[in-house]
Design a protein around this nucleic acid. Sequence first.
DNA 1: TCCTTAAGTTAACGCGCGTAAGTTTAGGGA
DNA 2: TCCCTAAACTTACGCGCGTTAACTTAAGGA
Lengths: 212, 212
Amino acid sequence: MVTAVTNSEPRRRNRRGEGGKLREEIIAAAVALLDEGGDASSVTLRAVARKAGIAAPSIYAHFADQPSIMLAVVRRELDALAVVLREADEAAGSDARERLFAVCNAYLDFARAHPQRYRIMFGGVWTATAEDTSITDADLLSLGDSAFTLLADVLGACVEQGTAYPSDDLYGDAVALWLGLHGLAHQRAVVRTMPGPADVGDRLIRALAHLK
Amino acid sequence: MVTAVTNSEPRRRNRRGEGGKLREEIIAAAVALLDEGGDASSVTLRAVARKAGIAAPSIYAHFADQPSIMLAVVRRELDALAVVLREADEAAGSDARERLFAVCNAYLDFARAHPQRYRIMFGGVWTATAEDTSITDADLLSLGDSAFTLLADVLGACVEQGTAYPSDDLYGDAVALWLGLHGLAHQRAVVRTMPGPADVGDRLIRALAHLK
DNA sequence: TCCTTAAGTTAACGCGCGTAAGTTTAGGGA
DNA sequence: TCCCTAAACTTACGCGCGTTAACTTAAGGA
């Protein structure tokens, strides 16, 4: 599959103060490449440039190097995930149990809807590359903070409401809950046909949140 | 880092009937490359050849292409994992609870000891490449069978012994337990510095096995 | 209108990759 | 002893990659 970028219009050059627009287009192009089913290695600098309809060197005006593009993608998608979770939480009403399932299922749905993105977000694109770049471990850890905090809050609400058994370490249990969700989400994002019963997600949530 | 393969001996050519020996050496070379800290993309055909001390084209006598090498690596490591788990189980004695923790911790220890291997085993090297190769989904699913069956058996023993609450779906709970272990193992294999309390592994096991 | 400068382009570099075709080395049966 | 052939080597091709340097276009205020 060549995707044949036969744009008749070569691309409208941005206006004077709007050079920054291209930055967003580059990130979008990288995400589009992922969504087409490629893995991380198919998101090359040149492929992104082709997708965005620009020449490869034009990227260097907006990103220092190729890994920086990937980091921007991860940033964007983690922010999008946090928004999705927050929306699901607000739509769930005030019952803590409902909120918990809403948030957890929204998480799993996001991963299912965008498996390639999920793999990039949590698949360790960095471990190998971050050594050479200016990306620090602290950078990476802070990325998912917003989404995780929401999950921990909702779990706390379940304990307060009495829906879940009290915990000796709420933070630890929240981490464990997320790890379970992540295990399922990641495996689904990887194998195409996941073995096990359909309700395995609910099983994970109920067990890890210590629901009554 | 160049690793400078300055072998004085260019490499002893194998005897007549022993051409198959090189196959094992190639797999070992690929694993060695992983252990040096590279990601999947640094296990190139030529890098493997350099590591094994042979010329790149010599690999084609034993593997159809580069993905086939990776599949062989995954096979080897999954077999090794199954052996490790089995040994841990046998060393744990007859108490079901002890056996469960022994097997689960052996799993986590394996991932911690060989993070790069673990990432390859479960990181979705295939999803992108398997389309072009002769590797089927059924192939991949059957790979981890031996290890998973052991885990499910031990979990069943816990229920029988009364250490764990009875389950309405033992298989489903075993899958959920594995997913939790996998989430932790994978995340540790990816981020270098994993947040959360040190006993998060025990939390996962206790909750997902429904221990009393 | 012209000129400055932001927003791109084209050209070229060196590298490592997978693969093809032909060549050498040495074990072991006749 | 000779020579066949398995096992591995050498050389070479073309490609896509990331990156750099130098050049071109056009927006928009003076």
